[in-house]
């Protein structure tokens, strides 16, 4: 008799736990407002990343097409993956002195791990992390970018 009661109670208890589980899923079934998923490409306009989001390395230019990069190469040294290459050139300043300036700041997004070490190490704050996160391209070569815009110059008040 005892075994029979135990047998029936195991069945009932088992059914009870099942009903409890169903209560949780049922709770959410009837509350479609709690849905947390987003429809990504549709909500592109409203989608805003956090201000520290590390999407890619960019070099901000002001309205006169001036940047802050002196071409010192510290970011290149700090990069663990070799995704930054600095090509410098010598120009002559109006005073007649020879000066080393940046020719091309080459950035391989395909090799970048977005570790933030270059941005942290940059003494002049010339490069920052961008917010863009949609990096898919058709061709791998498009991932290699030149960060300084053509014809851009060093800002006046940046110390070397």
């Amino acid at each position: 008799m005892k075994a029979l009661i135990q047998y029936i109670s195991t069945i009932l208890q088992g059914l009870l736990t099942l009903v409890k589980g169903m209560a949780v899923t049922g709770h959410y079934f009837f509350r479609p407002k709690l849905i947390t998923t987003q429809q990504y490409p549709e909500n592109r306009q409203t989608l805003k990343m956090f201000d520290r989001f590390r999407g890619e390395v960019i070099m901000p230019h002001d309205e006169n097409n001036h940047h802050k990069c002196t071409g010192c190469g510290i970011c290149e040294m700090n990069c663990p993956n070799g995704s930054i290459e600095i090509i410098t050139k010598m120009i002559e300043t109006p005073e007649g002195k020879k000066k080393k300036v940046i020719d091309k700041h080459i950035y391989h997004l395909g090799m970048c791990t977005l570790c933030n070490l270059c941005v942290k190490a940059c003494p002049t704050g010339a490069i920052v992390m961008g917010q863009k996160f949609e990096h898919a391209v058709w061709d791998r070569t498009q991932l290699t970018k030149v960060l300084n815009q053509p014809g851009s110059e060093l800002m006046k008040d940046v110390k070397e």
Binding site: T113, L114, C115, L117, M129
Partner: peptide
């Protein structure tokens, strides 16, 4: 993401 700038590979 708000503090470190990344979700998975925090560094």
């Amino acid at each position: 993401e708000e503090t470190c700038g990344a979700r998975l590979t925090l560094n």
